Amino acid sequence: MATLRPLMQPLRQCRSILSQHAQPSTSTPPTACARRFISSNSTTASSSSSPSSSPAPTSQQPYPSKKKPLTPAQQSFLSSALRVNQAGELAATLIYTAQTPPVVAREPHLRPLMKHMYDQEAGHLRTFNALLAKHRVRPTALYPLWSVLATGLGWTTAVMGREAAMACTEAVETEIGGHYNGQIRTLLEMVSEWEAEGYEVGEEFRELIATLRRIRDEELEHLDHAVEHDAQKAEPHWLLTGIIRAGCRGAIWVSERV
């Protein structure tokens, strides 16, 4: 046995060296790159080995969302709607601009009301200016004509008196409120049709409907203000409002097409 000890000592050293190479040391931490690699692969391995986390078969995947393209008729409707709305809001701002000095000169207490209605109309105009630019819709070619007529209408009714100025607002907002209602109704019909066919309705389209509803409600608020401030006492009320409403309908019809 004494003679084998010198031979056993080198064998023990070889076994110790081999065992160190066969098993990685747990005392040395992996590098940053190694940590990322280990983490990534361990996640992948666990997800691939777990039956519950495996992806569903292709046939069970949800269908991707789909949006139906607008027809030429729908595109034409939206373009004309934005165009006429922008023209109408321009006319409204010019009417109030022309009305305010004569009305406020005789009725100073109406200054806050006139400013409130003008500010809302100016906000509507900015909204439609932005929509026209965003969707590359041309404004009406009769822009200069409507500007002159709106200014003249506002100044004339204001000179006639507070009641006539308010009757002008009553007539204009009656037509504009009905016009916005018609647009909203058409857009909602388009939405119902798309949803019935399984198509998705874009958020931008829903925002347009919400914008039209808000503006319509503010226009009808102006109508209420006009009635509250003796619009129906204008003489002759039926003739004045009838002429203005007919003019609004004509301007809407032309602006939708020109």
Results as ranks from 00 to 15, higher is better:
residue 97 T to F: 04
residue 97 T to R: 09
residue 98 A to S: 09
residue 99 Q to G: 00
residue 99 Q to H: 05
residue 99 Q to R: 04
residue 101 P to M: 11
residue 101 P to N: 03
residue 101 P to T: 02
residue 102 P to R: 03
residue 102 P to V: 06
residue 103 V to L: 07
residue 103 V to D: 02
residue 103 V to R: 00
residue 104 V to W: 03
residue 104 V to F: 04
residue 105 A to E: 13
residue 106 R to N: 12
residue 109 H to T: 15
residue 109 H to D: 15
residue 110 L to V: 07
residue 110 L to D: 08
residue 111 R to I: 13
residue 112 P to C: 11
residue 112 P to H: 06
residue 113 L to I: 14
residue 113 L to N: 04
residue 113 L to W: 04
residue 113 L to V: 13
residue 113 L to G: 06
residue 114 M to F: 14
residue 114 M to W: 11
residue 114 M to Y: 13
residue 115 K to P: 03
residue 115 K to G: 05
residue 115 K to F: 07
residue 115 K to Y: 08
residue 116 H to T: 13
residue 117 M to V: 06
residue 117 M to F: 09
residue 118 Y to W: 15
residue 118 Y to A: 07
residue 119 D to H: 15
residue 119 D to A: 15
residue 119 D to R: 14
residue 119 D to Y: 13
residue 120 Q to V: 04
residue 120 Q to P: 00
residue 120 Q to W: 12
residue 121 E to V: 04
residue 121 E to L: 06
residue 121 E to Q: 09
residue 121 E to Y: 13
residue 121 E to K: 10
residue 121 E to G: 05
residue 121 E to A: 05
residue 121 E to N: 09
residue 122 A to Y: 15
residue 124 H to S: 03
residue 124 H to T: 05
residue 125 L to W: 08
residue 126 R to S: 14
residue 126 R to C: 11
residue 127 T to Q: 07
residue 127 T to A: 10
residue 129 N to A: 07
residue 129 N to F: 10
residue 129 N to P: 07
residue 130 A to D: 13
residue 131 L to D: 07
residue 131 L to G: 06
residue 133 A to D: 15
residue 133 A to L: 09
residue 134 K to T: 08
residue 134 K to F: 01
residue 134 K to Y: 02
residue 134 K to N: 07
residue 135 H to N: 12
residue 136 R to H: 10
residue 136 R to V: 02
residue 138 R to Q: 10
residue 138 R to A: 14
residue 139 P to V: 05
residue 140 T to E: 00
residue 140 T to L: 08
residue 141 A to F: 12
residue 141 A to E: 05
residue 142 L to F: 10
residue 142 L to G: 03
residue 142 L to P: 01
residue 142 L to W: 08
residue 144 P to H: 11
residue 144 P to T: 09
residue 144 P to D: 06
residue 144 P to C: 08
residue 145 L to H: 13
residue 145 L to F: 15
residue 145 L to R: 14
residue 145 L to M: 14
residue 145 L to D: 05
residue 146 W to N: 10
residue 146 W to E: 01
residue 147 S to H: 07
residue 147 S to R: 15
residue 147 S to V: 12
residue 148 V to L: 14
residue 148 V to D: 08
residue 148 V to I: 15
residue 148 V to W: 14
residue 148 V to Y: 11
residue 149 L to P: 03
residue 149 L to T: 11
residue 149 L to I: 14
residue 150 A to C: 11
residue 151 T to V: 10
residue 153 L to V: 09
residue 153 L to C: 10
residue 153 L to F: 10
residue 154 G to D: 09
residue 155 W to A: 15
residue 155 W to C: 10
residue 156 T to R: 09
residue 156 T to M: 12
residue 156 T to K: 09
residue 157 T to W: 01
residue 158 A to G: 08
residue 159 V to H: 05
residue 160 M to I: 06
residue 161 G to K: 02
residue 161 G to V: 04
residue 163 E to I: 04
residue 164 A to S: 08
residue 164 A to P: 05
residue 165 A to P: 00
residue 165 A to R: 01
residue 165 A to T: 02
residue 166 M to Y: 00
residue 167 A to E: 04
residue 167 A to R: 00
residue 168 C to E: 03
residue 168 C to H: 01
residue 168 C to R: 03
residue 169 T to N: 05
residue 169 T to A: 04
residue 169 T to V: 00
residue 170 E to R: 08
residue 171 A to F: 00
residue 171 A to W: 02
residue 171 A to Q: 01
residue 172 V to W: 03
residue 173 E to G: 04
residue 173 E to C: 03
residue 173 E to K: 07
residue 174 T to F: 02
residue 174 T to M: 01
residue 174 T to R: 07
